[in-house]
Computed example of a mutant assay.
Amino acid sequence: MNPRNTPERWGAVSQSFHWLIVLLILGLAIVGLTMGDLPRTPKYFWVYTAHKSMGITVLALMLLRLGWRLYAGAPAPVAGTPRWQAAIASGTHWALYALALAMPLSGWLYDSSSGLRPFRFFGLFDMPKLTGPDEWLAERARDAHELLFWVLVLLVAVHAGAAFYHHLFRRDETLVRMLPARRARPLPRQDPDHVA
C-alpha cells in the first residue's frame, strides 16, 4: 500500500492516523463520560491521569496528522460529487482537525489552571503547566472542554453519516478510500489443454 495520499485515495499514513485517533477519541469519550461516577480511590486518580495522557497523545498525533496532510495533500473529491458537497466535506474535515486539537488543549489548560500538581504523562515525566492557578480560567477551560466534546460528537456523527450515505446510497468510493486497499484476487490459471 502506498504511504502517500494519491488523487484517488488516502495513503497508509493518513489512514493510520485517522483510525488510531478515532480509537483514542472513542476511548477518551467513554472514560470522560464515566469518570465522574467512579469512587475517589487510587484507581480513580490512575484513570484520570490516563485520560489526560491519552488526550495529550491525541494532541501530538493531530499535530503530526495535520503536518502530514499539509505535506501529502488530500485525494480529489470522488467523481460526480457536487461542488457544494465537496466544499462541505472539506470544511468538515478542517473543523474536525480544529476540534481534535482544541479538545486536548482545553483539557490541558483546565488541568494547568486548576492548581493541581503536574500530571505524569503515562507515568514517564511531568507535563508542564500552561498557566498558573486561576479559578476563573479553570472554570472557562472546563466548560469549553465539555462544549467542544459535544460539538465534536455532533460533527463526527455528521461526518460518519455522510460517509455511509455515500457508501450505501451513492455507492461511490468515499468511504472505501479511507480503508486499507484490498488486493485483487489473482485469476485462476487456465490449463492450456482445457477447452471450454
Results as ranks from 00 to 15, higher is better:
Gly123Ile: 00
Tyr48Gly: 15
Val176Ile: 02
Arg65Trp: 06
Lys52Ala: 07
Met178Ser: 01
Pro104Cys: 08
Tyr165Gly: 13
Leu70Pro: 03
Asn2Pro: 11
Ala72His: 14
Leu24Phe: 00
Ala12Ile: 04
Ala160Ser: 13
Arg185Met: 15
Leu116Glu: 14
Thr34Leu: 13
Tyr165Trp: 14
Thr34Cys: 07
Trp68Leu: 13
Val151Ala: 11
Ala79Arg: 14
His93Cys: 03
Pro133Gln: 12
Ser16Met: 14
Phe45Leu: 13
Ala12Gly: 10
Val13Gln: 04
Leu66Gly: 03
Ala141Met: 11
Ala162His: 04
Val78Asn: 02
Pro75Met: 00
Asp126Pro: 05
Asp37Thr: 14
Arg9Gly: 08
Leu63Phe: 15
Met127Cys: 08
Ala86Cys: 01
His194Thr: 12
Arg83Tyr: 15
Pro82Ala: 10
Asp126Arg: 06
Pro7Leu: 06
Ala86His: 02
Ala157Gly: 11
Ser114Ile: 05
Met54Glu: 08
Leu168Met: 08
Ala76Leu: 13
Asp191Ile: 05
Trp136Leu: 10
Phe149Tyr: 10
Leu148Asn: 05
Gly36Glu: 08
Ile88His: 03
Leu96Gln: 02
Met35Ile: 12
Leu130Lys: 06
Pro42Leu: 06
Val47Ala: 11
Val58Arg: 00
Ser16Gln: 11
Thr57Trp: 00
Phe121His: 14
Met1Arg: 05
Gly107Asn: 07
Pro7Lys: 06
Pro186Ile: 05
Asn2Met: 07
Ala181Glu: 15
Leu70His: 05
Pro188Thr: 01
Ala50Gly: 08
His166Val: 14
Leu154Glu: 11
Arg189His: 14
Ser90Cys: 11
Lys43Ile: 10
Trp46Phe: 15
Gly107Tyr: 04
Pro128Val: 04
Ala196Ser: 13
Ala162Ser: 03
Ala141Asn: 03
Ala184Trp: 12
Leu99Ala: 08
Asp193Ser: 07
Tyr44Val: 04
Leu101Ala: 00
Leu59Cys: 04
Gly32Arg: 12
Leu99Met: 09
Ala162Thr: 10
Val195Phe: 04
Gln85Gly: 02
Ile30Tyr: 14
Ala95Ile: 03
Arg40Met: 11
Trp108Lys: 01
Gln190Cys: 08
Leu23Tyr: 14
Met178Asn: 02
Asp134Ala: 15
Leu23Arg: 09
Trp108Ala: 02
Ile21Asn: 14
Ser106Glu: 12
Pro128Ile: 02
Pro39Glu: 01
Gly161Gln: 07
Leu155Lys: 09
Ala74Thr: 09
Leu124Glu: 11
Arg171Asn: 09
Trp94Pro: 02
Ala79Trp: 07
Met54Trp: 12
Val176Arg: 06
Glu146Met: 08
Phe149Ser: 14
Leu99Glu: 05
Leu64Phe: 15
Gly67Cys: 06
Pro128Asp: 00
